[in-house]
């Protein structure tokens, strides 16, 4: 089995390119992905499941904890900043120390990009849940509040799951079915159609699209 279609990387930023003879302008996100080093091979005999552990972006040993450094040392791989696992369906012939590069993806393929949404902090109901705002006149002094949050004696409590002001963003998010527009193996870059969660420079993961639902148009 070939290398798994999975890469760790960082979001670099967005730009646009002209594609094809027609020169259609395509919005793309540049992801600096890989090279990822296999830092551990998990087998059914040993671990109960098949997986590859991938490491991305070498860093000083000081940055990571002693147990993590110990793990790297045991595998004979340099300390890396990010460690993630990919589940495999069948055994891979990749060994510890092998690298996976951006060429596992090709232009035209569909991928999912997993990242962390930009953190927005503690936000009110208007921003988080799109609540409307209340009149500004007629003595109203609470324009951005949630309003009524429930009934009276019955049920006598606020229903569970009621939308309120809350911490927003900074959570894992997957954008699905993005098209790979271009791959530059030398520069370790993958260009993906459209936007991807997170800030520039944030850690992201790219995998082959899980659900390739047929496109509605064209």
């Amino acid at each position: 089995m070939a290398a798994p279609k999975f890469l760790l990387g960082r979001k670099v930023g967005m730009t646009q390119i002209h594609r094809g003879e027609e020169g259609d302008v395509v919005p793309v996100t540049v992801i600096s992905a890989g090279p990822c080093v296999v830092s551990q091979v998990k087998t059914v005999e040993n671990d109960g499941y098949l997986a590859l552990q991938l490491a991305f972006e070498e860093c000083r040993e000081k940055v990571k904890s002693k147990p993590i450094n110990g793990h790297f040392k045991k595998q004979g791989v340099k300390t890396h900043r990010f460690l993630r696992e990919v589940r495999l369906a069948e055994p891979s012939d990749l060994k510890v120390g092998d690298t996976i590069k951006a060429d596992v993806f090709a232009a035209g393929e569909k991928v999912d990009v997993i990242g962390t949404v930009k953190g927005r902090g503690f936000q009110g109901v208007m921003r988080v849940w799109n609540f409307g705002h209340k009149p500004e006149a007629h003595g109203n002094m609470n324009q951005r509040g949630p309003g009524s949050i429930g009934m009276h004696t019955r049920p006598g409590e606020v229903l569970k799951g009621h939308r309120m002001a809350t911490h927003w963003g900074d959570e894992r998010c997957t954008t699905r079915n993005l098209e790979v527009v271009d791959v530059d193996v030398e520069k370790n870059a993958v260009l993906v159609y459209g936007a991807v969660p997170g800030n520039r420079g944030d850690f992201v993961m790219i995998r082959a699209a899980k659900a390739c639902r047929p496109k509605k148009t064209s």
Binding site: I17, V30, D184, A189, R200
Partner: peptide, 12 residues
Amino acid sequence: MKLVRELESKYT
């Protein structure tokens, strides 16, 4: 962003 500039150069 330097990488973005470099990749753009392929299309400019």
